[in-house]
């Protein structure tokens, strides 16, 4: 249970900070003495946090399902033809800067939450796809051969052998994807998605460093919280499936 302590503490801290930001007003007055408003009030921080998180969670869920399905398809006999291309797309796609992908979504889809969601899904898919391929391809060929030779159906081999063995690598891919998407969603404020990037952008536009700080702190906290959650999940996974390496 100890592994879950850091994410829980960070979550409590994040929620407390989001809810209690106005109480820190004196501090921000000291940072930004020349402004009337020193605490961002256009939206509540809790709402922005929730919206930000929702974008990331939805994109991670859709991205994971799509990427894992794609990875599975490309490594089955029926989809083998597509494997070289799919792995090329996964690696070339990741050289595209996320901001540029975000920017390209706007001309196609317009402003608001839809384009950012599409951009997050498409971009977030790539690391998961790459890791799914690496994980599935990394399964020892003799293990797969033994499983088939002992009488497992291809579906049972996938479910009971390949996915559990590739799971750790896939999880690492999801972690990378979510880390990137939290950052990209923050920049999404510039195309009209309401996220924790809003206070930062508003602060930059109005020269209000206090706003910038509030947004930046919460974004950083969010990233750390989610990352610690993945850290804990990976530890639990290792303990469950790789006991000999966990000591």
């Amino acid at each position: 249970m100890r592994v879950w302590l850091p994410p829980v503490l960070l979550t409590v801290l994040l929620c407390a900070l989001s809810a209690g930001m106005p109480t820190l007003e004196p501090l921000f007055e000291w940072v930004q003495p020349d402004k009337q408003n020193v605490v961002y009030e256009r939206e509540s921080f809790l709402f922005l946090l929730q919206n930000h998180l929702m974008l990331v969670v939805i994109s991670a869920l859709v991205g994971t399902v799509a990427a894992v399905a794609g990875g599975i398809f490309a490594t089955r006999p029926a989809g083998r033809d597509f494997l070289p291309l799919v792995s090329q797309i996964a690696s070339i796609g990741q050289t595209f800067p996320p901001v540029a992908v975000l920017a390209l979504a706007v001309p196609v889809l317009g402003f608001g939450e839809a384009p950012i969601l599409v951009a997050l899904i498409l971009y977030g898919l790539l690391p998961i796809l790459r890791n799914t391929l690496a994980g599935l391809e990394g399964v020892d060929a003799t293990v797969r051969q033994a499983a088939l030779g002992m009488g497992m159906s291809p579906f049972q081999v996938l479910l009971q052998v390949e996915l559990p063995l590739a799971g750790r690598v896939i999880l690492a891919g999801i972690r990378t994807s979510v880390t990137i998407n939290i950052a990209t969603a923050a920049i999404g404020s510039t195309i009209g998605a309401r996220t924790l990037g809003d206070p930062v952008i508003a602060g930059l536009v109005n020269g209000n460093t206090a706003y910038v700080l509030q947004g930046a702190i919460l974004i950083g906290m969010l990233a750390l919280t989610v990352d610690s959650l993945f850290e804990a999940a990976e530890r639990v996974w290792d303990r469950r499936f790789l006991p000999q390496t966990a000591g």
Partner: peptide, 11 residues
């Protein structure tokens, strides 16, 4: 590396 870019720039 974990902290989002916008936050680092802001901080």
């Amino acid at each position: 590396q974990t902290i989002p870019s916008l936050a680092v720039f802001g901080l």
